[in-house]
Protein backbone atom coordinates (compact mmCIF):
# COMPACT_ATOMS: atom_id res chain seq x y z
CA UNK A 1 0.00 0.00 0.00
CA UNK A 2 2.80 2.39 0.90
CA UNK A 3 4.49 1.63 -2.42
CA UNK A 4 1.30 2.41 -4.33
CA UNK A 5 0.96 5.70 -2.45
CA UNK A 6 4.59 6.55 -3.15
CA UNK A 7 4.04 6.00 -6.88
CA UNK A 8 0.85 8.08 -6.79
CA UNK A 9 2.62 10.92 -4.98
CA UNK A 10 5.42 10.71 -7.53
CA UNK A 11 2.93 11.03 -10.38
CA UNK A 12 1.27 14.01 -8.69
CA UNK A 13 4.61 15.75 -8.23
CA UNK A 14 5.60 15.05 -11.83
CA UNK A 15 2.39 16.49 -13.13
CA UNK A 16 2.71 19.46 -10.79
CA UNK A 17 6.25 20.25 -11.90
CA UNK A 18 5.25 19.93 -15.54
CA UNK A 19 2.31 22.28 -15.08
CA UNK A 20 4.25 24.81 -13.01
CA UNK A 21 6.92 24.99 -15.69
CA UNK A 22 4.34 25.69 -18.39
CA UNK A 23 3.67 29.19 -19.67
CA UNK A 24 0.00 29.54 -19.03
CA UNK A 25 -0.91 31.19 -15.75
CA UNK A 26 -3.94 29.03 -15.07
CA UNK A 27 -1.94 25.86 -15.62
CA UNK A 28 0.56 27.11 -13.07
CA UNK A 29 -2.22 27.60 -10.52
CA UNK A 30 -3.48 24.08 -11.15
CA UNK A 31 0.09 22.84 -10.82
CA UNK A 32 0.46 24.41 -7.38
CA UNK A 33 -2.79 22.71 -6.38
CA UNK A 34 -1.45 19.33 -7.46
CA UNK A 35 1.83 20.03 -5.69
CA UNK A 36 0.06 20.62 -2.39
CA UNK A 37 -2.11 17.52 -2.90
CA UNK A 38 1.05 15.48 -3.34
CA UNK A 39 2.54 16.98 -0.20
CA UNK A 40 -0.61 16.21 1.81
CA UNK A 41 -0.69 12.61 0.65
CA UNK A 42 2.98 12.38 1.54
CA UNK A 43 2.25 13.39 5.14
CA UNK A 44 -0.43 10.72 5.33
CA UNK A 45 1.89 8.06 3.95
CA UNK A 46 4.82 9.14 6.10
CA UNK A 47 2.71 8.79 9.23
CA UNK A 48 2.17 5.14 8.33
CA UNK A 49 -0.96 3.72 6.77
CA UNK A 50 -1.54 1.14 9.50
CA UNK A 51 -4.39 1.33 11.96
CA UNK A 52 -7.78 -0.14 11.34
CA UNK A 53 -9.95 1.97 13.63
CA UNK A 54 -10.47 5.70 13.78
CA UNK A 55 -8.34 7.41 16.42
CA UNK A 56 -11.17 7.75 18.93
CA UNK A 57 -10.98 6.37 22.43
CA UNK A 58 -13.27 3.35 22.71
CA UNK A 59 -13.40 0.09 24.61
CA UNK A 60 -11.16 -2.66 23.34
CA UNK A 61 -9.60 -0.76 20.44
CA UNK A 62 -5.84 -1.11 20.27
CA UNK A 63 -5.03 -0.77 16.57
CA UNK A 64 -5.98 2.77 15.66
CA UNK A 65 -4.68 5.16 13.04
CA UNK A 66 -2.20 7.90 13.93
CA UNK A 67 -4.30 11.06 14.39
CA UNK A 68 -1.45 13.54 14.08
CA UNK A 69 -0.86 13.30 10.30
CA UNK A 70 -4.60 13.77 9.79
CA UNK A 71 -4.55 16.94 11.88
CA UNK A 72 -1.52 18.16 9.95
CA UNK A 73 -3.18 17.46 6.61
CA UNK A 74 -6.33 19.30 7.64
CA UNK A 75 -4.25 22.33 8.57
CA UNK A 76 -2.23 22.10 5.38
CA UNK A 77 -5.39 21.74 3.27
CA UNK A 78 -6.94 24.83 4.85
CA UNK A 79 -3.78 26.78 4.14
CA UNK A 80 -3.46 25.59 0.57
CA UNK A 81 -7.15 26.36 0.05
CA UNK A 82 -6.52 29.95 1.13
CA UNK A 83 -3.36 30.32 -0.91
CA UNK A 84 -4.88 28.81 -4.05
CA UNK A 85 -7.92 31.08 -3.78
CA UNK A 86 -5.65 34.09 -3.40
CA UNK A 87 -3.47 32.97 -6.28
CA UNK A 88 -6.55 32.63 -8.50
CA UNK A 89 -7.58 36.20 -7.72
CA UNK A 90 -4.05 37.36 -8.45
CA UNK A 91 -3.85 35.41 -11.69
CA UNK A 92 -7.15 36.87 -12.80
CA UNK A 93 -6.08 40.43 -11.97
CA UNK A 94 -2.74 39.94 -13.66
CA UNK A 95 -4.54 38.63 -16.72
CA UNK A 96 -6.91 41.59 -16.70
CA UNK A 97 -4.10 44.13 -16.41
CA UNK A 98 -1.53 42.52 -18.68
CA UNK A 99 -4.06 41.20 -21.22
CA UNK A 100 -2.14 37.94 -21.40
CA UNK A 101 -1.71 34.77 -19.39
CA UNK A 102 1.57 33.89 -21.00
CA UNK A 103 4.38 34.03 -18.44
CA UNK A 104 6.89 34.64 -21.22
CA UNK A 105 5.32 38.02 -21.82
CA UNK A 106 5.28 38.87 -18.14
CA UNK A 107 9.00 38.80 -17.58
CA UNK A 108 11.02 41.93 -17.56
CA UNK A 109 12.14 44.73 -15.32
CA UNK A 110 11.63 48.45 -14.98
CA UNK A 111 12.68 49.22 -18.49
CA UNK A 112 9.75 47.24 -19.84
CA UNK A 113 7.09 49.25 -18.04
Amino acid sequence: MELLMAILIGILFTAAVYLILSRSLIKIVIGTGLLSHGAHLLILTMGGLGGASPPVLAEGVTDFADPLPQALILTAIVISFGVTAFMLVMAYRAYAVHKTDDMNQMKGNDEHD
Binding site: A39, L42, I43, M46, G48, L68, L72, A76
Partner: peptide, 9 residues
Protein backbone atom coordinates in the same frame (compact mmCIF):
# COMPACT_ATOMS: atom_id res chain seq x y z
CA UNK B 1 5.45 20.25 4.34
CA UNK B 2 7.33 17.43 2.63
CA UNK B 3 10.34 17.91 4.91
CA UNK B 4 8.15 17.95 8.00
CA UNK B 5 6.55 14.71 6.79
CA UNK B 6 9.98 13.08 6.40
CA UNK B 7 11.07 14.34 9.80
CA UNK B 8 7.89 13.02 11.38
CA UNK B 9 8.33 9.61 9.84
Amino acid sequence: VITVAYLYS
